[in-house]
Design a protein around this nucleic acid. Structure first.
Lengths: 170, 170
DNA sequence: GTTTTCATGTAACGAGTTACATGATTCT
DNA sequence: AGAATCATGTAACTCGTTACATGAAAAC
């Protein structure tokens, strides 16, 4: 139920079309909340129907620019302050760990080595992303920087853990 | 698509009924792959239809005991060795971070303080769980211990990050 | 004999994915 | 003129959640 809030959040910065939002997802939110094109257009229609956003302008090629309404902003704030985040369960990566005894120790260690590599690659990608952006003092930079730092720490933690885990398997 | 593999994995230890598996999910896999009763019975039917598991015994009250077939074990091994884990995206917690500028700095800091507390609570719960189990040298203990260590490290990381993040918000 | 536990299933709905379908406009 | 990009939408399907429904057997 959070795609709607992701869209409201992006529209709180500035009005945008579905196409714009699609692009912005790719660059900023793809890591924390991926969404398909199909899903976004559907959700935007629903948001417009429920009055949380409105069509503020029409452009060429049927372009519809959406703007956050007062109700939409209220809903966004309500979500941020009054509702508790659901903890993030369901990890394919971790699920596999429970069944590593089904394969050979060599295969298990190889799986954990892959995880280490994956973590390193993601860490590196985030580091490059951090370098490519010139961070200002504006709120968006601060928030983006905080989210990115999470990614860096997360991948560092996961790399260390996978190394430790590989060592546990005898 | 991993619930099926979670079920195959649990059945690789020993045969069990849907009801048994439901109980075992609660204690072991609930943290990494929660599933509802409804979902599990449906998935077990599908697995039986496709021949990856079979009904090995019938008990009182319509109890059906399922056993992993050779094809099922092969599929489980295939999943573990040949397929790449999908990285874990979609974090409600992190999504909110992107929009903290929409609320007041005080509210934002309060949100991060909640996250710190949540991480501490989960860490503590896992620590208690670790203490309550007498870990042996058997494969299941090793795997369970590895998964649990992940949880401990993850929550420690998240707590530190939230503390750091709160400090970034001025 | 009543409550608890065991045990399985279905229906309706919401969220997410893949694929298909269409067409206007801008760029080269 | 043709290719790339902009731009939106729908259909079919899978996965996951909530709620409903049922009843046998064991425990007290």
């Amino acid at each position: 139920m959070s795609l709607r809030h992701a869209l409201l959040g992006l529209l709180s910065e500035r009005p945008a079309s579905g196409y714009d939002l699609l692009k912005r997802f790719e660059t900023s939110l793809a890591n924390v909340w991926p969404a398909t094109q199909s899903q976004m257009y559907t959700e935007l229609s629903k948001l417009a129907d429920s009055g949380l956003i409105g069509v503020s302008a029409q452009g060429p090629r049927g372009r519809k620019e959406y703007t956050l309404t007062d109700e939409g902003l209220a809903e966004l704030r309500h979500w941020l302050t009054e509702t508790k985040p659901q903890r993030n369960t369901r990890s394919d990566i971790l699920l596999r760990v429970f069944f590593l005894n089904v394969i050979t120790p060599d295969q298990a260690r190889s799986y954990l080595a892959e995880l280490m590599e994956l973590s390193e690659q993601e860490h590196e990608a985030l580091r490059r992303l951090a370098d490519s952006i010139d961070w200002g003092d504006d709120p968006l930079s601060v928030n983006g920087r905080i989210a990115l730092e999470y990614g860096l720490r997360f991948n560092a933690m996961r790399r260390e853990w996978a190394a430790w885990a590989a060592d546990q398997i005898r």
